[in-house]
Computed example of a mutant assay.
Amino acid sequence: MADVQPFPFASLDELKARWPDFPVGAEKYAETLLEDGSQFILDVCPSAANASEATRRRVLCAVVKRRMDAEQSDLAGLASASTTTGPFAESVTPANPDGDFFLKKSERRSLGEGQQKAFGVKIADTGCVDHRPWCSLAFGATYCSCGADLTLEGPLWEA
């Protein structure tokens, strides 16, 4: 894989600028997560190497913030929560219980994954192909026996 610069994609100051409630005393841990998160993004979304620096920075900061939020708060990133008063029931389902790194669909798309690209396939010969004089086509057949139709450049067999 190509060497992507800068690595990690964001600095600690850039993470703090995007997260006003950054936890006090978590600077060293956040720097480690910024490196791990950058590598995670490249591993699961190789097209991120071609994305702009600003996009990689934004996505990395969001990934690291989600990870740190999930570890610090029981209420951060809940998939569902319900409370019943009598006879006292409470149910909480975390969206990311292990605090793993993950990319949202919109983040993957902004990093270039899953984008459609146009392409074309040559389905017919548009020029003249030189067949061998003894090719089956020279004797009235409807198929090429020298392989020139396959390569579209010249005979493949019967040299």
Rank of each mutant, 00 (worst) to 15 (best):
A62H: 07
N50D: 07
W157F: 15
V121T: 13
A141N: 14
L103C: 09
C45W: 06
A62V: 10
E31P: 04
A49K: 05
A79E: 03
P155T: 06
A138V: 13
S145T: 06
R56K: 11
P94D: 03
T83F: 15
F139C: 00
T84S: 15
T83I: 12
S136L: 11
G25Q: 04
E53V: 15
D13S: 04
A51Y: 14
A141C: 03
K16D: 00
L137A: 06
A79I: 06
A159F: 08
S73A: 03
W19S: 07
L103D: 00
L33I: 04
E71G: 09
S145W: 06
G140T: 06
L15Q: 01
T55M: 05
E14T: 13
Q116K: 11
V64D: 00
G120I: 09
A51D: 01
P97E: 03
R108A: 02
I123R: 13
F7N: 05
P8M: 01
A138Q: 15
F101H: 09
K105V: 14
V121A: 12
K105A: 12
L78E: 03
R132Q: 13
C128M: 15
S47L: 09
P20E: 03
H131L: 08
E158Y: 14
R67K: 13
V44I: 14
S47C: 03
T83H: 06
R56E: 03
M68K: 02
S38Y: 07
A70Y: 07
P20K: 07
V4G: 00
Q39M: 10
D36Y: 15
S47Y: 06
L75G: 10
H131P: 04
P8I: 08
A76D: 01
I123Q: 00
A2E: 10
C45F: 05
S52P: 07
M68D: 00
E53S: 10
R132W: 04
C61P: 01
V24E: 05
K104H: 14
G77P: 03
P20F: 01
E113W: 12
A159H: 09
D74L: 15
C61W: 05
C45T: 14
V63I: 08
A159R: 14
S145F: 06
F102W: 07
A54W: 03
